[in-house]
Design a protein around this nucleic acid. Structure first.
Lengths: 338, 338
DNA sequence: CTGAAAGCGCTTACAG
DNA sequence: CTGAAAGCGCTTACAG
């Protein structure tokens, strides 16, 4: 029995074993056309015996499509992203598409992982939080390689899925104001993606609208990651006067802030309120449970993947979708007016 | 200019544009053989103009290898796994290999994601915590498709990378005994992988060796995930007498346990000590910081990937590697003898 | 230094 | 219902 260099059986091996042509083997495997039951039976046996698995590469070459979606994510560890992955995964599975994930390491200059996919390894892809040059995106689009962006801005011609960061931050801030807080601090995330700026703008606009000034001393820079919220909170504690409430640009930093405060015996929310953004799973487990803004992460991933799959079927005009957020009130924001 | 159905340029387009044969284009792209500088120049320009990217599939078919490693992980969200991914990633990058990740959803019966890779999409793969039938593993091995398992048992013929769960758990337990604790409870993880049993055995043997009995009432079943530790700890609190210390089979559950205790005003470690396993990043941020056992996650991933890459080059006898763990003493275990 | 041609393992009209 | 043959986009001896 002929085998290729690596020892795996090819379609020719199966054909020979079953005493048919490779066309017939192909038909049996793909369940197309009619094949005589007995022939089918023989082929299936050969497949079994030889442990035959079709080569995705050969098949992809011949069919000019891979039935596989690519998904590139900047930080595989971010708990907020986990739900996005789930959404993309289920959308792909719903149309019998496979999903291949690549994680683009932080601050990676090269587009290596992007190229991995654009080299025709997948039919289209979803990018979340990956800096990509507009011209690259444009070119992929014209080339007929559909792309959807999540949580990042691209160009007009590329489908984009965002959440209403501005509105969410604004509503959360307004909630704090309604509770009676007047001196609010902000722990910022990194500006690699636009969401930090949008959240900060929502925060500022809510203050402005209420006729309140923002004390620049009540601003500390973080980077969204665990640890940066810790340092930021410590910085804020050195400022005078202390703020009454802290708005962290994401939950991870908010949880850090709570930890710092508790460690120092500062009560949350009685002495200082803390709120976050994202509603990651841990938010509800915190002590006290965290008031935050929920982003529809699963939906974001699901819709983005569906968009790519749709574009694979028919020509579409790429849209820009902004999904609403939801205010989740828990105990960490307290109630000053009570 | 000829283009294929999707509109992307092929090697033939580049050849035509540069007025050379496809052989020459191939040589320029792969930097092999000598090519006349001017010819090279013309080809490079054509590549630029046409945005040419070689098809990974065509190349893979022709070369019979992909320079890509596959990595399948059961839970992309587990913080302990993040470091493993990093290790695999860096090992791959060190030999100019790409990495493709697939996450096998929990309890997924089918081997869909495994097949994704064995269909010659990658040259070899690293599996972490994926249930795989022995015969499948054996067959891949004989077929010349190297596989390395991480944190899971396979067969003799497949490289396996584990950590010393037994020793780590035993040493941690001995530490608790040395601190004066006598009544220890255990919160178990799921038994999908062998590590829970090994840890429990280390725990039990330490007790036995000290001549202490284990109270079956002091056992609660969790599943390693966030939330299960919460319920398990609540269960334990209903038992009489209460234990003096709780050994959770991983950090996530230990952090849950601490949360339950703090919520109820039970002091950790003064009233009840808590320890975990893994040393995830959050462990040191907990209140109090968690005493635990560090697993060399990065090293685990790095070594496993290196093994696969090595097996791609030369024949190797698969080894079984058990990496040592390290006891990390922090505040959550207190000191009863002090 | 360069090109024509075979081959990688599939799918898919086209005949029969 | 089945097979021979072309073609997918590359690489790689083999000639020259």
């Amino acid at each position: 029995m002929e085998k290729n260099f690596r020892g795996d059986a090819t379609i020719a091996d199966v054909a020979q074993h079953a005493n048919v042509s490779i066309s017939t083997v192909s038909r049996v495997i793909n369940g197309l056309n009619r094949v005589h039951p007995q022939t089918r039976q023989r082929v299936m046996e050969a497949v079994e015996v030889l442990h035959y698995q079709p080569s995705a590469y050969a098949r992809g070459l011949a069919m000019q499509r891979t039935r596989t979606l690519g998904f590139i994510i900047s930080s595989i560890s971010d708990p907020f992203y986990v739900e996005i992955v789930r959404g993309v995964e289920e959308a792909a599975a719903s149309e019998q598409y496979n999903l291949l994930i690549a994680s683009q390491p932080f601050n990676m200059e090269s587009q290596r992982y992007l190229e991995l996919f654009t080299q025709k390894r997948v039919d289209g892809m979803v990018l979340v939080g990956i800096k990509t040059r507009k011209e690259v995106l444009e070119h992929l689009q014209t080339r007929g390689f559909p792309v959807a962006l999540v949580q990042q801005e691209g160009t007009e011609n590329v489908a984009t899925f965002l959440t209403d960061n501005y509105g969410g931050a604004r509503r959360l801030t307004e909630h704090l104001l309604r509770l009676g807080y007047r001196h609010l601090a902000y722990i910022a995330g990194s500006n690699d993606t636009p969401d930090n700026l949008e959240r900060f703008k929502g925060f500022r606009d809510a203050l402005d609208h209420a006729g309140l000034a923002f004390n620049p001393n009540h601003f500390a820079q973080g980077d969204y990651y665990r640890g940066s919220g810790y340092r930021a909170m410590e910085e804020l504690l050195e400022r005078h006067p202390l703020p009454e409430a802290v708005f962290a640009a994401n939950d991870q930093m908010a949880l850090d802030a709570i930890l710092v405060l508790r460690t120092r015996g500062i009560r949350v929310p009685d002495d200082l309120a803390v709120v976050g953004f994202d509603d990651i799973p841990m938010a509800s487990y915190a002590l006290p449970p965290l008031t935050t803004v929920r982003q529809p992460a699963y939906e974001l991933g699901f819709k983005a993947a569906k968009e790519v799959l749709g574009a694979l079927r028919e020509r579409r005009t790429p849209q820009r979708v902004v999904l609403p957020t939801q205010l989740i009130v828990r105990a960490s924001c307290g109630d000053r007016s009570a």
